[in-house]
């Protein structure tokens, strides 16, 4: 396991104002590889934390779909390297939302009431928790709070990118994060 790979500097032979996104928009394979190396790992991690409601939906497949859509729509994106992560994660989030709606439409339950999702508080003991425990804990939070904490505390996105991904303001991101952390502390998490 390793941390996110930072974006390398563009080749010095180019204009100093040229970004990797500009090169990727022009169809440079090296630029796409650099962008992929910088964001693909965090994107997969973030997608693993999002409940899709579909057991067949794999995070790697969703991530690849997001990359494909991003490559197809890069001509309409006018941001820089800093904004690319938020734009890419937003594409993936829209894809997850579509899958979630589709799963809710097709869901069938043997009982009249859908099964409740309970947080396994008995297994929460500290920083050595598994990703599954964190995912279950975040899924018990309100949707916005869970998404904000996933972006900031789990995937290590900044507030600006998180606001762009979720389509909310930065103050709303901070408020949602504080409320979510308070709920997690009340559940036994030592944060």
């Amino acid at each position: 396991m390793s941390g996110p790979v930072p974006l390398p500097d563009p080749p010095p032979s180019l204009d100093p104002h040229t970004s990797w996104v500009d090169l990727a928009r022009e169809g440079d394979p090296a630029a796409w590889r650099a962008l992929y190396d910088a964001h693909a790992g965090r994107l997969v991690l973030w997608l693993r934390q999002l409940p899709t409601g579909d057991a067949a939906a794999d995070a790697d497949d969703l991530a690849m779909d997001a990359w494909t859509v991003a490559a197809s729509k890069i001509a309409d994106f006018d941001g820089d390297d800093d904004a690319f992560a938020g734009w890419l994660f937003g594409i993936a989030r829209n894809h997850v939302m579509n899958i979630r709606r589709r799963s809710a439409r097709r869901a069938t339950y043997a009982t009249a009431e859908p099964p409740e999702t309970t947080m396994p508080t008995e297994s929460v003991t500290g920083p050595a928790e598994t990703a599954e425990a964190i995912r279950d804990a975040l899924s018990a939070l309100p949707q916005r709070e869970g998404e904000v904490i996933t972006c900031i505390d789990v995937v290590d996105l900044d507030v600006e990118t998180t606001a762009r991904v979720l389509g909310i303001s930065r103050p709303a991101v901070r408020v949602a994060r504080q409320r979510g952390l308070r709920r997690l502390r009340a559940s036994g998490w030592r944060l």
Partner: peptide, 30 residues
């Protein structure tokens, strides 16, 4: 170490074929 919720992202490395494919998609959309 300060945040128990922090998870390390999986390693995803690109290959030349993937870069070429994404570049072709970008060129087509452009």
């Amino acid at each position: 170490h300060d945040n128990p919720l922090r998870l390390d992202p999986p390693v995803r490395r690109s290959d030349p074929a993937l870069g070429e494919r994404l570049a072709l998609l970008a060129l087509a959309s452009t």
